[in-house]
Amino acid sequence: MPCVALLCLCAALAACVDAWRPGRPAVAVLLIGPLLACARLGVRATLTTAAWALALAVTVGVVRHVGAGPQVAVEYLVLLVGGLAAVHIARRAAARSARLRLLDEVAQVTQAALLRPVDARFGDIDVHTRHHCAVASATVGGDVYAVANTPYGLRVFIGDVRGHGLDAVCVNAAVAEGFRDLAYVTADLTELAVRLDARIAPVLGPEDFVTAVFAEFAPGEVRLVNCGHPPPLRLGAHPKVLTPVTCSLPLGLGCDPTQSRYWLQSGDRLLLYTDGLVEARNASGAEFPLFDRACEALSHTLPWEALDGLYAEVTAHTGGPLRDDVALVLCESGVPAARSANPVPAAQSPQGL
């Protein structure tokens, strides 16, 4: 339909030009059609429009018995060269679009490989993850998470890389790999954050950074290091937003982390998430009321169903798919093994997930 509209536009322009300057048609005006086509449509539509415009110009010249002259020759030459240039521009735009689509597909595949779903039991902690991409046409986001069952206890990492696309995914890979390498050999959680900051520095651009939360589980408690990331939620008998006493800058900006300790009773749940969850807005611009909705959605159901229910709540709030990716990690303490329907048993879980 757009191509047909441009062809009609060219015909209308030819008629107007013929009525305005009979015997001396300003045929170069017909170049408007091909230029519009190369800006909005593909190569085929641009080529068709350029050929149609040239044919109309020749037809008007023949019907009106336009004599050959320098001015007329120049105008026909401008139309011909301009049409060819419009086709060339459309071809370059199509090639660039194809490259961008290919890069986005590569980024999506790489991100899917990095963010493998975890539904496993580590000791007395159940860990369940979900990653929800934004609408299919959106650029890949920078969410990342990783789990490591180390000699120092179960450690969970969640982060959000500034930016989108293949560059963000490359940083994601470096962050996940660095965490898995360092988590097994670094006893102190704050030192782990500092060493990871130094590890990923070579792959970060001048304006890049990574917000992150490190969690380490011990009997009856969870230790947290927060580097500029949305604070986790503890859900259970005493729900609480686990806001750090001292805020640290994100990784890549000179983080100076401190560790916080919180009680974690049997049956309590810890929700870690990325900012796509809290920044989801409805039609009136109101943000998602995470604390109230999470307490309701995550308190009565099985953990893997709770995560799906929470995402259903946020999409109901926004009225459709989110504009940003969302990564969710739900850890539940001290639940009976019978409640843990783990597709990947703990003994067979890939090390460092």
Rank of each mutant, 00 (worst) to 15 (best):
90 A>D: 09
351 Q>S: 14
92 R>V: 03
171 V>H: 07
52 W>D: 04
330 L>P: 04
70 P>G: 03
347 A>P: 00
307 L>I: 03
109 V>M: 07
41 L>N: 04
83 G>Y: 06
211 T>D: 09
333 S>G: 02
347 A>F: 08
261 R>M: 13
209 F>V: 07
315 T>Q: 10
25 P>K: 07
204 L>A: 07
3 C>I: 05
48 T>L: 13
331 C>W: 02
150 T>P: 13
196 L>R: 02
54 L>K: 01
72 V>Y: 14
24 R>N: 14
190 T>Y: 02
277 L>W: 09
327 A>T: 10
241 V>T: 14
249 L>T: 12
284 S>Y: 00
145 Y>E: 06
263 W>F: 03
175 V>S: 08
33 G>F: 02
23 G>V: 03
182 L>M: 07
144 V>G: 03
26 A>D: 11
187 A>R: 10
72 V>M: 10
281 R>F: 01
211 T>A: 12
28 A>Q: 12
243 T>S: 13
84 L>D: 07
95 A>E: 14
75 E>V: 01
309 G>T: 14
47 L>G: 14
128 H>F: 05
315 T>M: 04
196 L>W: 00
94 A>E: 14
244 P>I: 07
346 A>G: 15
308 D>G: 09
238 H>F: 04
194 V>P: 03
131 H>F: 15
32 I>A: 13
215 A>H: 08
153 G>L: 08
6 L>F: 08
269 R>P: 04
259 Q>P: 01
157 F>H: 09
193 A>S: 10
27 V>D: 00
102 L>Y: 07
343 P>V: 00
129 T>V: 00
112 A>L: 05
137 S>R: 15
77 L>M: 12
191 E>T: 10
77 L>I: 02
81 V>S: 08
295 C>K: 03
249 L>F: 11
306 A>I: 03
15 A>W: 09
58 V>G: 13
188 D>T: 02
24 R>I: 03
124 D>V: 10
95 A>S: 10
1 M>A: 15
242 L>G: 05
131 H>L: 07
315 T>G: 06
165 G>E: 04
141 G>T: 02
128 H>W: 07
335 V>E: 13
73 A>M: 11
60 V>S: 12
301 T>K: 00
167 D>P: 04
168 A>Y: 06
308 D>M: 00
60 V>Y: 01
78 V>Y: 13
186 T>I: 11
21 R>Q: 11
12 A>N: 10
19 A>I: 00
190 T>W: 01
344 V>I: 12
330 L>M: 08
116 R>T: 15
113 A>M: 12
31 L>F: 04
253 L>N: 06
285 G>N: 11
34 P>H: 09
224 L>A: 07
